[in-house]
Amino acid sequence: MTHSHRAPTLRADRAQLEQLPVSVWPTAQQVAGTQRQGRYVPGSVAHPAKMLPAIARHAIATFTSPGDFVGDPMCGIGTTLVEAVHAGRHAVGVEYEPRWAELAQANLALAAQLGATGTGHIHQGDARHTLPQLAEHYPAQLSLLLTSPPYGPSTHGHIRHDRGHGVQKFDHVYGHDRNNLAHRSLPQLLDAFTEILRAALPLLRPGGIVAITTRPFRHNGELLDFPSLTLQAAVAAGLQPVQRCVALLAGIRDRHLVPRSSFFQLDYVRKLRARGIPVSVIAHEDVLILQAPTSGAPLTQGGVACPLTSPRRRR
Rank of each mutant, 00 (worst) to 15 (best):
M1V: 13
S185N: 13
A106H: 14
K50L: 10
A112W: 12
R11L: 15
H137V: 15
A7M: 12
T294P: 07
A112C: 03
P307I: 00
P202R: 04
L223Y: 13
P132C: 02
S143T: 14
H123W: 01
R160S: 12
A140S: 15
P150A: 03
P293S: 04
V287D: 04
G208R: 11
G33R: 15
A283K: 11
V167D: 12
D126G: 08
L266W: 09
R57F: 08
P149S: 08
F170S: 06
L134S: 04
Q240R: 10
Y138P: 04
T117K: 12
L201G: 03
L114S: 05
L10W: 06
S262F: 13
R178H: 10
R11N: 09
Q105D: 11
S295H: 15
P42G: 06
I289D: 00
Q35S: 09
T62N: 02
T119H: 12
A91H: 01
Q19A: 15
I122P: 00
L145C: 08
A127E: 04
P98W: 09
N180M: 13
L266T: 10
I209L: 07
H86G: 02
C306A: 13
G120R: 00
E285M: 04
M74F: 05
A192P: 05
Y40T: 05
H47M: 10
Q16K: 15
V242T: 11
R275F: 12
L272V: 02
S261T: 15
A247W: 02
I55E: 02
V269G: 03
C245V: 11
K169P: 05
S185Y: 08
A305C: 13
G67F: 07
Y96C: 00
L249P: 05
L144I: 01
F217H: 12
A59R: 03
R160I: 04
I60M: 04
E102N: 08
Y40L: 01
V92L: 02
H58Q: 13
T62R: 10
E95P: 11
H123F: 06
L197V: 08
Q35M: 11
A283Q: 10
V24F: 04
H165E: 09
A56M: 05
V210Y: 03
A140M: 09
A12D: 11
R57C: 12
N107H: 08
V45W: 11
H121F: 01
S148A: 14
R270V: 11
R260L: 03
T117N: 03
T147V: 05
T34Y: 04
P66L: 06
L114K: 10
A211D: 07
R273I: 02
D68Y: 10
T130E: 14
G125C: 04
R39P: 04
A292N: 13
G175P: 01
L10Y: 05
R99A: 08
E285A: 07
A106M: 10
G78V: 03
K169H: 15
G208E: 01
A56I: 01
Q124H: 05
G166M: 06
H5G: 06
V281L: 07
I282G: 06
A274D: 13
T300S: 13
R215E: 09
V70Q: 02
L231E: 00
L110F: 01
L20V: 06
F264W: 14
E83Q: 05
A54C: 07
Y174T: 03
G38A: 03
S4V: 15
V246S: 02
L114F: 05
V24M: 10
I55S: 02
A234G: 09
A305Y: 09
G157P: 13
T294H: 15
V258F: 05
